[in-house]
Design a protein around this nucleic acid. Structure first.
Length: 495
RNA sequence: GGUCAGGUGGCCGAGUGGCUAGGCACCGGUCUGCAAAACCGUGUACGGCGGUUCGAAUCCGCUCCUGACCUCCA
């Protein structure tokens, strides 16, 4: 089941071609470093992508890079954000693009998001965009004014009643009556018309030759052109942030219908916004928190540094369609929850089950696994899937502590549990264990710690607790936690 | 102003008619030399006012509050 923004309800997901999924997600505009709100969206789609792969689908995941075209103001008078930034920094636009793109990739990598199958850029598909403009012109859904091409929304609305606005839930009448203060839009026949191709003044830094003279593409066009090129005229999933729903996605549909006569997308998925102190984070509001700030603890809202995996875990604890408020408390709580999850997974590797029958504990495992999949199948409900996982973690710990004897659990169920939890947590949720010595501390540290623990164990055996506690305290200061168990002590590095 | 989402216990965050979501924090217990971790247990909820129903956090109406979109934004 997938929640489809177009119909506003959950629908059974059946791909166009059995076993294959085409998914397009609107990527970032690369004129500034990514903020954590961007990251939330792409992590959400990363999990959807991973889950589809896990289910065995062949997925073609296309996520674009917008490296041209966004205007800061309405209409033709506005400045291109990218150009503005380039002028401010006295750089070539493509230098800005390069910087922001590399930064974006770094962030996504640190959050362990898989790269998309194709990551096309707008500037790399100028030809396709020009061709699409021509097709829309040919079909009569656009008109030219002074070298710029505008989409004719009125004709579109007339020919396709109840289409325009269907996605964003706007009534076409309301859209047409829009009387917003529109400055310098005299070229357009109607305020709702939008630019497909914009005529460029000579000094404009990014422009290309077209049948209508030198110019550059309108913002909405690239996604239509590139999704059509790589996924076809109709494809399964189109995703993006909720803030793109109108006008971007609405116009995208219009362009596709105008160009090819078919509705391009079968399932629209929109992720909700991330907020800080209850307000949406947005590049234009300048209230961004960067991932780097989170990861280094240098920002104003965090008390300390948080590993990217903790941030990712926190994102998993909320549903992608809910707004999500970022706070220090939430991060601190997530850190503990994440550690508990990772510790549980490690414990699971070590415990044994010797049972052969089918006990209530085996039922609990079976039901737990079933409910994990049930929740993920229900519009990718990671929070609920996590709840089911934590129930199983409790059971794993009970087994480890001897509250449940190993004979009470069937060997096969435990094996199944190992397989499923590892797959869900690592492959689907994309959570990497960064809690232990596994984080690249190397063999030498392992050897040193083994020695230290041995000496401390000796001190404890001699009832020299002062020494034992001193070792533990000093190690804690150094970021290493000691836990004394029945079978000796263990250690872990704080992330 | 128009449109659309929400308001859940100390915090975060699920949940669309009856059955403990979960995480974190708190309290009691077990374990431990002491901790930590873990396990067991207890408590604190569904913005307000009405209504439907045998029964509502969940449906309906009104009301208050918050956010998002309507302009570039993930």
């Amino acid at each position: 089941m997938v929640h489809n923004s177009l119909t506003r309800q959950k629908e059974v997901f059946t791909p166009l071609v059995e076993g294959q999924v085409g998914m397009y997600v609107c990527g970032p505009t690369v004129y500034k470093s990514a903020h954590i709100g961007n990251a939330r969206t792409f992590v959400s789609f990363d999990i959807i992508y991973r889950y589809l792969l896990h289910l065995g689908y062949r997925v073609r995941y296309v996520r674009n890079i917008t490296d041209v075209g966004h205007l800061t103001d309405d209409g033709d008078q506005g400045e291109d954000k990218l150009l503005k930034q380039a002028i401010e920094e006295k750089k070539q636009p493509m230098e800005i693009v390069q910087m922001a793109t590399l930064d974006f990739h770094d962030v996504m990598k640190s959050l362990n998001a898989l790269p998309p199958s194709i990551e096309p850029t707008a500037t790399g598909h100028i030809i396709e965009q020009i061709r699409m403009v021509s097709q829309i012109l040919e079909r009569g859904y656009a008109y030219e004014v002074n070298g710029s091409i505008y989409f004719d929304t009125q004709k579109y609305i007339k020919d396709h009643p109840n289409q325009y606005g269907a996605l964003s839930g706007k009534k076409t009448d309301d859209l047409l009556e829009e009387t917003r203060d529109l400055n310098n839009q005299s070229d357009k026949k109607h305020p709702t018309d939008f630019a497909l191709w914009i005529s460029a003044p000579k000094e404009h830094l990014m422009q290309w030759e077209s049948p209508w003279g030198m110019g550059y593409p309108g913002w909405h066009l690239e996604c239509s052109a590139m999704s059509t090129k790589y996924l076809g005229k109709t494809f399964d999933i189109h995703g993006g942030g909720l803030d793109l729903l109108f006008p971007h996605h609405e116009n995208e549909i219009a362009q596709n219908v105008g160009c090819c006569g078919t509705n391009p997308v079968r399932y629209w998925i929109h992720t909700n916004m991330l907020t800080v102190n209850g307000t949406k984070m947005s590049k234009s509001l300048n209230n961004s928190v960067s991932p780097a700030e989170l990861f280094t603890g240098e920002g104003s809202i965090m008390s300390k540094a948080f590993n990217p995996m903790i941030v990712r875990f926190l994102m998993l604890q909320s549903h992608y369609r809910s707004t999500f408020d970022l706070s220090d408390d939430a991060l601190l709580a997530a850190e503990k929850g994440y550690n508990r999850l990772m510790q549980g997974l490690k414990t699971l590797e070590q415990i044994q089950a010797t049972g052969t029958g089918q006990t209530e504990h085996d039922d609990r495992i079976t039901n737990g696994i079933e409910s994990i999949y049930g929740h993920l199948n229900d519009d990718f409900s990671t929070p609920q899937a996590l709840a089911s996982i934590f129930d199983l973690i409790t059971m794993i710990n009970s087994l480890n502590d001897g509250h449940i004897s190993s004979a009470e659990v069937n060997t096969n169920s435990l094996e199944e549990l190992r397989k499923v939890l590892a797959a869900i947590i690592h492959d689907v949720f994309g959570l990497i264990d960064v809690t232990a010595g596994a984080s690249g501390s190397g063999q030498s540290l392992d050897a040193v710690m083994e020695l230290v623990l041995e000496l401390r164990q000796q001190a404890r055996a001699d009832r020299n607790f002062a020494t034992a506690d001193l070792i533990r305290a000093k190690l804690t200061e150094a970021g290493i936690t000691i836990k004394d168990g029945k079978d000796g002590s263990s250690w872990s590095v704080q992330s």
